[in-house]
Design a protein around this nucleic acid. Structure first.
Length: 322
DNA sequence: AAACAGGGGTTAA
DNA sequence: TTAACCCCTGTT
C-alpha cells in the first residue's frame, strides 16, 4: 500500500503477533539515511529507550511503539498500524521534509561537514507542544539521564496507564494539562501533598522546577496564556521567544527548545553550554556573549539554524569537544 | 565517609 | 551582570 508517498506493508511481529508496519526505503530520505541513535539520543526527546541494536521504544501521543531500521533501510514500527503511521509517525519523524536541501544548506564549512558526516542521519522530531514545554522546564540545570528520569517520573505520577496489547507495549502517557494544573503537587505549600503519597512528589521530585511546572500548567489550563502556534511560527523569532517566556520557568533557552522541537519553527538555534562553547571556539571569540552567539548562528545558518544546531550539538557532545 | 562541585537554566536583585 | 535555587550524581 501507499501512505503519503511511502510504500508500506502491514505485518505481525513477535510471538504475540503484534500489529506492525514496515515503511520501505526510509533511508532514501536523506544522503545520510535515518539514524535512530542520533535521532533519539541527541537530547531533543527524552522518552525513547534503546532496547536492542537499532531498536528503540517510546510513547508518543499515548501510543507505545518500537522503531527499528531493518534490512536495506526499511523502518519497522511495532505496535502501530497504517493509520498510526499516517496519524502520528509521518509527522513525528518529519517525513514530509526534504533533508537533501537542508543538509546541503547546513554544510557551510569544514566543521559542519564533519558534524553532518557524523550524525547527519538524525531527524528533527516534531513533538507535542505541551510535552516539549514541560520536559524542557524540567531540563534546566540537569543532565540528560536525569531529565529522562524526571520526565518518566512525571508520567508515572500523572499520566494515564497504557495497557498495550502486550506488556512489551505498556507504560504511561505524558500527563494531560488538566492533571498538571489541578493535581500536580508543586511543593510550594506548607500542607501535605494532595495528589499522591509518593516520595517522588513535591520537593522530592524536581526541586525548584516544581512550582514552574504547576504555575505554567495553571496559566495554560485557565487560558490566562493561550499560545497561538500559528502566529508563533511566522512572527519574528525574537517575538516568538519573548511570548513563550511569559510562562514561568521558560527563559530564552527553554523557549527556543520548545519552538524548535515541537515543530513550530526551524530557524531557531537554542544556545546551551555545549553549543555556546562550540560556536565560540569554531567561529567567534572565547568571550563572546550568548547574545552575540545567537545573532551569529541565526544569521549564519538562517532558515536551517535549528537543524544545524541538532547536528552540531550532538557532534560536539559525543566527540566531547571542549 | 562526609564534603564538594557542577549539571544542556531561570529568576530576582 | 550575578548569585541563589532543589536535587542528584560523580568525585575527592
Amino acid at each position: 500500500m501507499d501512505i503519503n508517498g511511502f510504500r508500506a506493508e502491514e505485518c505481525r511481529t513477535g510471538i504475540n503477533e503484534i500489529e506492525s508496519i514496515i515503511i520501505h526505503d526510509i533511508s532514501d530520505l536523506s544522503p545520510y539515511g535515518f539514524d535512530l541513535k542520533s535521532t533519539f539520543e541527541s537530547g531533543q526527546a527524552f522518552r525513547w529507550k534503546k532496547t536492542g541494536e537499532n531498536r528503540y521504544k517510546g510513547i508518543v501521543k499515548g501510543k507505545a511503539a518500537a522503531v527499528s531500521i531493518v534490512s536495506k533501510g526499511n523502518m519497522l514500527i511495532e505496535n502501530s498500524t497504517a493509520k498510526d503511521f499516517k496519524d502520528i509517525w509521518y509527522d513525528y519523524f518529519d517525513l514530509g521534509t526534504d533533508y537533501y536541501k537542508i543538509l546541503k544548506d547546513s554544510e557551510k564549512d569544514d566543521f559542519m561537514r564533519s558534524a553532518i558526516r557524523f550524525c547527519g542521519g538524525a531527524r528533527m522530531l516534531v513533538q507535542d507542544f505541551e510535552e516539549t514545554l514541560f520536559s524542557y522546564i524540567i531540563s534546566s540545570q540537569n543532565n540528560i539521564p536525569r531529565i529522562r528520569g524526571l520526565v518518566e517520573d512525571l508520567c508515572m505520577l500523572h499520566g494515564k496507564k497504557i495497557s498495550g496489547a502486550e506488556d512489551d507495549f505498556s507504560g504511561f502517557s505524558f500527563p494531560e494539562l488538566s492533571e498538571l494544573a489541578l493535581n500536580f503537587c508543586s511543593g510550594d505549600e506548607d500542607d501535605q501533598c494532595k495528589c499522591c503519597s509518593s516520595s517522588l512528589c513535591g520537593k522530592q521530585f524536581a526541586g525548584y522546577r516544581c512550582p514552574y511546572i504547576a504555575r505554567t500548567a495553571q496559566m495554560l489550563y485557565s487560558r490566562k496564556y493561550v499560545p497561538d502556534l500559528g502566529k508563533l511560527s511566522v512572527m519574528p523569532g525574537d517575538m516568538a521567544r519573548k511570548d513563550l517566556q511569559k510562562l514561568p520557568g521558560v527563559g530564552q533557552k527553554v523557549a527556543d527548545c520548545v519552538l524548535l522541537y515541537s515543530g513550530i519553527r526551524k530557524d531557531i538555534c537554542p544556545i546551551d553550554t555545549w553549543v555556546a562553547r562550540t560556536i565560540r571556539k569554531t567561529y567567534l571569540e572565547d568571550n563572546s556573549s550568548i547574545r552575540e552567539i545567537r545573532i551569529f548562528t541565526e544569521d549564519y545558518f538562517g532558515d536551517v539554524a535549528g537543524y544545524a544546531q541538532l547536528w552540531l550539538f550532538y557532534y560536539a557532545r559525543m566527540k566531547d569537544l571542549r
